[in-house]
Design a protein around this nucleic acid. Structure first.
Length: 455
RNA sequence: GGCGGCGUGGCCGAGUGGUUGAGGCAAGGGCCUGCAAAGCCCUGUACCCGGGUUCGAUUCCCGGCGCCGCCUCCA
């Protein structure tokens, strides 16, 4: 059985499902007020891998990830640019989707938008007020954190120590600095919805509880997101559900962040690289491989050197995929031992570094077999490699298209020269090809070219 | 101040109480090749510092030092 780290208990423990064979996952998606950066790319990849792996293992996975399309930052940006909030949100949601598609990340089964759930949120806030755990101030409606049993579980801190460390400016109307807004009264010009507390908008922490519970039901299986969401966002989501006596996530999964020169990548530090910029110069699969080569809970340094490193490693996998396609291996069952080793690694809190080590080991074994001309030995190994790469969303040797006329002509010229043992002419043709960005390889079947990996 | 994480070869990045340190990249040597490329083989004597526990610690405990994060918006 899959064992996963659970933030609520700070242990790696078996994933215990609400319903055998079915996994319900909710992952906090982006607030669409700006372009996505590498950190967003990491979290979508991490949870894409978890989702794919679970599916590959035979679970029926339902994956929900939201879009936050109403929020202070969206309002602020819209104000700055003289546009409506909806225009800003629509624009950046489109950018988000493009980037995610380019990353090779599968779209969630459902993508709820906060603005479509406001009425449900009003209902939930009213229930909290009725239950006596929420109160009204001039600013809006707040949840009284002291009323919630186990508050601080995800932060792994007591209420007292959280209170002691609170840096939140104390709002006189709030009973505790830790209390958080369920409903914010609208200021003039802000987007708003009707509510028993006057026009306003929901607090951020309310949207995810409502959407998760509405779409996945009480006691759903996995709630995920970046490590920085554990507190206060996830803590506060949980608090609302707990305050109403409803079962919430059974398992909390948080991924580590992307780091730049030792510091967390974030919008506020202005040290981010946009996903779009990265994908313009790096094969998206190389970024996936880079993410997979570190453990999902570790910080991950992304630099031009580390992406180039991953691109070079990816090339090894692609080379074998291409090579094995050329020799025409038989369709056979994947090597069962390789599959078993993969499952062992992945079941151990998603040990993708070990899984990737396994892939490269298979890669080498397949090359050895092919070098020896032993296609029967190579076939199950290559089949396993393909199977396992696919299980984590790595498509191998894609984009191997046909050649343009000039390139084909150069290839033919080189082949003729080599047949005539005219080495200077053959070398000249190769130089031209290399100059055009091709890697040139001589094979028994003649000259073969492929695109040099992006730098 | 509270809580948590990290410090491993040139680089990235796993992992473990003990004869042989995953994997990738880079580097050197070799095989193959007309020369290359690709591929394969070989080469690295690491675990921040100081104590402690132990027959034995990089791995456990304590104390330092350094870095990072959460406690505020953040993937």
């Amino acid at each position: 059985m899959l064992r996963l780290h659970d933030t609520a208990t700070a242990t790696v423990r078996p994933l215990e499902l609400r319903e055998p064979g079915k996994v319900s996952m909710y992952v906090c998606g982006p607030t669409v007020y700006d372009v996505p950066h590498l950190g967003h790319g990491r979290f979508v990849l991490v949870f894409d891998v978890l989702r794919r792996y679970l599916s590959w293992r035979g679970f029926d996975v339902r994956y929900v990830s939201n879009i936050t399309d109403v929020d202070d930052k969206i309002i602020s940006r819209a104000g700055d640019e003289g546009r409506t909030e909806a225009e800003v949100a629509t624009q950046y949601e489109a950018v988000w989707n493009q980037a995610i598609d380019a990353l090779g990340v599968a779209r969630p089964d459902e993508v709820p938008h906060a603005t479509d759930f406001v009425e449900r949120m009003v209902v939930l806030v009213a229930e909290l007020v009725d239950a006596g755990v929420a109160y009204t101030t001039a600013e809006g409606v707040y949840l009284a954190v002291d009323e919630v049993p186990g508050y601080g579980r995800l932060a792994r801190q007591s209420l007292d120590s959280l209170r002691a460390g609170a840096r939140v400016e104390v709002d006189d109307d709030k009973r505790s600095p830790l209390d958080f807004a369920l409903w914010k009264r609208a200021k003039p010009g802000e987007p708003s919805w009707a509510s028993p507390w006057g026009p306003g908008r929901p607090g951020w922490h309310t949207e995810c509880v409502v959407m998760a519970l509405d779409l996945l039901g009480d006691g759903f299986d996995v709630h995920g997101g970046g490590a920085d969401l554990a507190f206060p966002h996830h803590e506060n989501e949980r608090a609302q559900a707990v305050a109403l006596g409803r079962g919430f996530a059974r398992h909390w999964v948080h991924n580590g962040w992307v780091v730049v020169e030792g510091e967390k990548m974030s919008k506020s530090l202005a040290n981010f690289t946009s996903l779009t910029d990265l994908l313009a110069r790096v094969d998206s699969r190389a970024y996936r491989l880079l993410v997979l080569r570190s453990h999902y809970r570790s910080p991950l340094e992304v630099t031009p050197a580390s992406t180039a490193d991953a691109a070079a490693a990816l090339e090894r996998l692609d080379n074998l995929a291409r090579r094995s396609a050329e020799v025409g291996l038989a369709e056979v069952a994947p090597d069962p031992e390789a599959l078993a080793r993969f499952v062992d690694a992945m079941d151990d809190d998603l040990d993708t570094p070990a899984a990737m080590a396994l892939l490269f080991d298979l890669n080498r074994r397949a090359n050895v077999a092919l070098d020896a001309g032993d296609l029967d030995a190579a076939a199950p190994v290559v089949a396993a490699l393909r199977e396992l790469a696919g299980a984590v969303g790595l498509a191998l040797a894609s984009g191997d298209g046909s050649l343009d006329a000039e390139t084909s002509a150069l290839v033919e010229r080189r082949d003729r020269a080599r047949q005539a043992r005219d080495w200077p002419a053959a070398d000249a043709a190769r130089q031209e090809l290399v100059g055009r960005g091709w890697v040139v390889e001589d094979t028994p079947a003649g000259t073969r070219v492929r695109r040099r990996a992006s730098p």
